[in-house]
C-alpha cells in the first residue's frame, strides 16, 4: 500500500514539474523544474517500486542503485547545462543587473581593453555586449 501511494504521488509530481518546464520564462528557472521531475518524480517512483517488490530481492537492490545514481548525477547535469547556456550567450530574462558578467570580465582581463573594463564597472543597469565571451583563436 505504501508503494502504491508513493508511485501515484511521484507521477503527479512529475506532471507538475513538466508543466513548469513549459511555463517558466527562461532556462535558468527551467533547471528548477528539471530537478523537480528528476528527484521528486523519478526517485519517489523508484522508492515506491522498492516497497512494492519482494523485500531485498535483486530487483529492489537495483532500484536502490538507480536512486543513488540519479541523486548523484542530476545536479551535475543541470549545473553543466546552465553553465553552458551562460557561456554560449543565452541571456537571463527579467533581471536588472548581470553580476556574473563582471566577474568573467575580471577573470579574463588581458583579452579586454582597459577603458572598456573601467566603463563596465561603473555603468550599473545595462547588459554589455558580449565582448567577454571571445576566446583565444
Amino acid at each position: 500500500m505504501i508503494g502504491w501511494i508513493l508511485i501515484f504521488t511521484g507521477s503527479i509530481i512529475s506532471v507538475i514539474g513538466a508543466l513548469g518546464l513549459i511555463r517558466f520564462p527562461d532556462i535558468y528557472s527551467r533547471t528548477h523544474a528539471q530537478t523537480v521531475v528528476n528527484v521528486g518524480g523519478t526517485c519517489v517512483i523508484l522508492l515506491g517500486v522498492f516497497f512494492q517488490a519482494p523485500f531485498f530481492s535483486l530487483y529492489s537492490v537495483k532500484s536502490i542503485l538507480l536512486i543513488i545514481f540519479i541523486f548523484l548525477t542530476s545536479p551535475v547535469g543541470s549545473h553543466a547545462i546552465a553553465r553552458a547556456a551562460y557561456k554560449s550567450g543565452v541571456k537571463p530574462r527579467k533581471i536588472h543587473e548581470d553580476e556574473l558578467g563582471y566577474k568573467i570580465i575580471k577573470d579574463e582581463k588581458p583579452f579586454v581593453r582597459e577603458k572598456e573594463y573601467e566603463k563596465t564597472n561603473q555603468s550599473g543597469y545595462k547588459f554589455r555586449k558580449r565582448r567577454f565571451f571571445k576566446r583565444r583563436p
Binding site: 511521484g10 512529475s14 513538466a18 518546464l21 521531475v37 528528476n38 518524480g41 517512483i45 523508484l46 542530476s74
Partner: peptide, 8 residues
Amino acid sequence: TFLSIIIS
C-alpha cells in the same frame, strides 16, 4: 527530463 520520465 524526458529521459527521466521514460526511465520511470
